[in-house]
Design a protein around this nucleic acid. Structure first.
Length: 446
RNA sequence: CGGAGUAUGGCGCAGCCUGGUAGCGCGCUGGUUUUGGGUACCAGAGGUCGCAGGUUCGAAUCCUGCUACUCCGACCA
């Protein structure tokens, strides 16, 4: 993309009502615009990152065999009357009425609807296990939205639902979700720690939430800091092997890590002093096993191998997709702006032309742009007639992890400059070498 | 919902107390200049001062009502 033709309304000064760094930076970088309390438009740069995060979530869900579908944002109230949650949910649920005076609601989650779909079409244990998920906009009428997309009222969420014949199978689905979530967050450059949690209004027995450590987190967290060093890395996990999946979960949950909701001072005291840490975290996902909580009242049953009709065992699993943008920025920024991890960056590299209009510089930039594209890499080329300082400031603000700087002075020596946003380190090399280097870097971030 | 605020050009703000018909910085447009970390100067454009009513010769300014947004608290992916 050529910046001169893009829509990137950056601000020098953020609106005064933005409190936390991710909100301020998203506004300054021209990623979002608030339309009402807790409701945002996604401007092109923000939308690009949102779609990138969405793509990673899809890939990691499908990798472990989960099946995407798409349910509507508006749901009939009757479905929620069946589960009893229409009355139980309270004012947080946005209720609307159509022209025929039928009660509808803007879905805050989809347990009822997915259960309805399941019961209509599945009747045998032979059709199990089944995990369906979607990525859809949700609405929760928070009393007090704040922190930009971190706690909006409208938010994009991945929610998935597993259907299994019994508890053991459902717990395998639970563990499989944990592993897939760990990989999802790792690809986004995040360290998200699974912590035992309270089940809240969803209900159920087993639940973990995933927290990204950040000063501005809404939850207080207590943990053994060795948990932050655990990585899934490139290891392959057979997601159909319950023992293998469970082993990974145990590895990631055996060290102490709790939020203030479930914190156990006595157990925490067992953690060696040197590793005992208290901090704050942002919740970016949660997994639940809740058994037959919805299948029983809603009649979602299958016939098992004994010929008996039994309610299916279910769980639900959520990732706050739009919230992740805020969480990533909270975890990855500096005083000049955002620093996107390679996995989620809106463009793989920025190209800064130091002297727009200089024949050699223009040609070199165009050459780099085309060469990157040929390798499947996207570039944001700053071809405006701005001064170098302004271009650097914009690039630093929007946070592209790698920047190519091209000017007549360097070109005279046959080099361009490749700069790492995170470390600030620069290296001079030929344009060809720079393209190769970038291709190599991104080969590790599919 | 309880408490506290704010609403003036795209963004940040002043003006309001002590009514006299709107100003500053950034950004934007044109020009000159400059050009390796937000260049300097000149000339411009842009605002029914959140909405409605009231007081007054006259309201951004005073009064009443409403709406929106924000902060602290309880709640939450």
């Amino acid at each position: 993309m050529r910046l001169s033709r893009y829509f990137l309304p950056v601000l020098k000064e953020p609106p005064s009502d933005a409190q936390i760094v991710s909100h301020r930076l998203m506004l300054r970088a021209g990623m979002i615009r608030q339309q009402a309390a807790g409701i945002y438009s996604w401007l092109p740069l923000g939308y690009r990152v949102l779609r990138r995060i969405e793509a990673i979530v899809h890939e990691e869900q499908e990798r472990v065999g989960h099946i995407p579908l798409l349910m509507p944002t508006l749901q009939p109230a009757d479905l929620w009357r069946e589960s009893g949650r229409y009355d139980a949910y309270g004012a947080e649920m946005l209720r609307v009425r159509d022209r025929h005076k039928r009660d509808l609601l803007y879905g805050p989650t989809n347990e009822e609807m997915i259960t309805d779909i399941f019961r209509a079409h599945v009747g045998s244990y032979r059709d199990l296990p089944l995990t369906l998920y979607h990525i859809q906009w949700k609405f929760r009428d928070e009393i007090r939205p704040r922190f930009g997309v971190m706690r909006g009222r409208e938010f994009l969420m991945k929610d998935g639902y597993n259907f299994d014949v019994d508890k053991a199978a459902a717990l395998h689905a639970y563990n499989r979700h944990m592993v897939s979530y760990l990989r999802t967050y790792e690809r986004m450059g995040l360290t998200a720690i699974p912590m035992r949690a309270d089940s809240g209004p969803i209900g159920g027995d087993d639940t973990h939430e995933f927290l990204v450590l950040a000063q501005t987190g809404e939850s207080e967290v207590f943990y053994d800091d060795r948990v932050t060093a655990l990585k899934l890395g490139a290891r392959a996990v057979d997601h159909d092997d319950p023992a293998a999946v469970k082993a990974v979960c145990e590895e990631f949950t055996s060290l102490y890590a709790r939020t203030d909701e479930t914190h156990d001072e006595a157990a925490f005291a067992q953690v060696p002093q040197a590793h005992r840490k208290v901090g704050r975290g942002i919740e970016v996902g949660q997994i639940f096993y809740f058994g037959t909580k919805y299948s029983e009242p809603m009649g979602a049953v299958v016939v098992n191998d004994q010929g008996e009709r039994v309610p299916v065992h279910m769980g639900s699993h959520g990732i706050g997709v739009s919230r992740l943008l805020g969480a990533i920025i909270e975890a990855s920024h500096d005083e000049r702006g955002i620093i996107w991890p390679e996995g989620v960056t809106p463009y793989h590299a920025g190209i800064v032309n130091l002297k727009q209009g200089d024949g050699a510089a223009d040609a070199a930039c165009e050459g780099l742009y085309a060469a990157l594209a040929a390798k499947g890499l996207s570039a944001l080329y700053d071809d405006r007639g701005e001064r170098a300082g302004a271009k650097f400031a914009t690039m630093d603000l929007i946070g592209l992890p790698w920047r190519l700087t091209v000017g007549p002075r360097g070109l005279a020596a046959g080099v361009v400059e490749l700069t790492c946003r995170r470390t600030g380190e620069s290296e001079e090399m030929s344009p060809e070498a720079a393209v190769d280097r970038l291709a190599q870097i991104y080969a590790a971030h599919p």
